[in-house]
């Protein structure tokens, strides 16, 4: 029998040298993969959504593109899209709308970065926040003599809508149409699916999963 090396002997006595803990790796990897599984969103749609969110936010504030972060996270079977958009500065009044933003060129600068303050909002909240922000801007812009508290809530969005069109033009029209139809179908199956489980259609039950989850969990 060969005489074991001293290090070997030490290892036998004290147990193997500390490995990095693979338990932490598996937990981290599982959380990410499950967030995507549960949402059942394909990467293209996610990317389009990301670009549009950036385009909208960039109209009002200057976003720090180096520290941008979009991620999906789940907790207690609820999936959240977390967008972390560090703001460099608020755009000067009235300049937001007439500065065209090309989501494509700006998205190129984007990389996934690490932690900082997290900003999570769902679509409705975002819309509401947007309206509040617009109302505030309009109130300040026309504050010459007008009572800011009674600022007009009925906002003229025509300019903004044109701007949106311009942004979309950067994407191909087919893409947008495909995206719209996808969004519609997924909500439809979600609503009908959660009430009537359809065992015959394999695809509908797949999409029902994510929407079923979201429905039950938000309740």
């Amino acid at each position: 029998m060969a005489i074991p090396l001293i290090s070997d002997l030490l290892e036998r006595f004290f147990g193997p040298a500390e490995d990095p803990h693979s338990r932490d790796d598996v937990k981290r990897r599982l959380k990410i993969v499950l967030a995507h599984d549960r949402l059942a969103l394909d990467p293209q749609t996610l990317e389009m959504m990301r670009q549009e969110i950036i385009a909208v936010v960039s109209r009002y504030v200057e976003v720090d593109f180096d520290a941008l972060e979009f991620s999906l996270a789940t907790d207690q079977r609820v999936t959240a899209l977390t967008a972390n958009l560090p703001i460099r500065r608020i755009r000067p009044l009235g300049r937001g709308a007439d500065q065209p933003i090309s989501p494509d060129s700006e998205a190129k600068k984007i990389e996934l970065a690490s932690q900082s303050e997290i900003l999570a909002m769902d679509a409705e909240e975002a819309e509401a926040a947007l309206r509040r922000f617009e109302a505030k801007n309009n109130a300040e812009g026309s504050s010459d003599g007008q009572d800011p508290i009674h600022a007009p809530l009925d906002i003229d969005r025509s300019g903004l809508d044109e701007e949106t069109q311009d942004d979309n033009a950067a994407l191909s029209e087919d893409d947008v149409a495909a995206m719209n139809s996808e969004a519609e179908t997924s909500t439809e199956t979600g609503e009908s699916g959660s009430e009537v489980p359809d065992m015959s259609a394999p695809d509908s039950s797949v999409s029902m999963k994510s929407s079923g989850n979201t429905n039950s969990e938000s309740a």
């Binding site: 598996v26 990897r29 599982l30 993969v33 499950l34 599984d37 549960r38 079977r77 699916g193 959660s194 489980p197 039950s205 797949v206 029902m208 999963k209 994510s210 079923g212 989850n213 039950s216």
Partner: peptide, 16 residues
Amino acid sequence: ISAVRDADRVIGLLEA
């Protein structure tokens, strides 16, 4: 990892 991932998918299908 693979078993837990698949289990999660099945849980979603059962809920649906």
